[in-house]
Amino acid sequence: MTTTAAPEARPAERRTAPAAPPPVRRRRRRGDALGRTGPSKYLAHAGVWLYVLLLAAPLYYLVISAFKRNTDIFNQPFSPFTPLTFDNFGLAFSQASLGTAMLNSVYVTLGAELVTLLLAIPASYALARSKGAVGRMVERVFALGFLIPGFAALVPTVLLSISLGLFHTREFLILFLPASALPLTVILLTQAMRAVPAELEESAVLDGAGPLRVLWSVYVPLSVPTLTVVAILNFLSFWNEYFFSLVIIGPDAALRTAQVALPTLSIANAAQYGVLAAGIIITLVPAYLVYAVFADKMESAVLAGALKG
């Protein structure tokens, strides 16, 4: 019995590892989860699977439509066995200049990631080491930042970009997006760096390392797990950013990001879902790749994002 249960228990242990060591955890048998509940368990299973079906249906429709000809989308909307075509992907690329748009998105996302880390790492390092009241106050300032809903300041942000001479540029977003990511990034990194044992730092200092050297050789390597979580979280929010890119970078095909370019496909192809579906899939690829590579980290990243309240 225990051999069949062992693989199930593992993911739970991984998630809770920092909180509680797992040796006493008792295991449930597979398929037996609602075992002792009466007939109502069928209701529960049915309800959940109905939900899963409703969740999956638009995604299924999206994926099969991307590989279909338009007439097949209309005539056999749910059949996966219609003639396969890749034309939609080519059309999506050419109609919305998606190639340029994807490169713009990569530029903005990576630029903003870099600026975020350059600002957040030294700040977190200082906050983690400081024990005084000022440090606590600065930390509280960042914690309050969570409560600020950025969307309310849409118009003033546009004005800021105009007054900096950066309206209709991608560079303004590279500078602006890190500000929205800083509170969470700084708080999570500060916590990770507080957990660095003081002895390590002391021995580095005895070896003659200055503060920068200590940061680079002791703190940064030891906070790599949190750095990864933070980077994933920021990658997703930067890559998927829509409203500020729309109003600040604007609709110019040479500068706009993928998220701004994508909706133009729906206007250009009012009755052709295939091209739009292909476009959606193309813009999803980078986010999906990050998910595929860091699947186990993703959950803790999203969880960390939730905890910011």
Partner: peptide, 8 residues
């Protein structure tokens, strides 16, 4: 749905 942007 986490991976989808508002526009997607």
């Amino acid at each position: 749905p986490v991976l989808l942007s508002a526009s997607a």
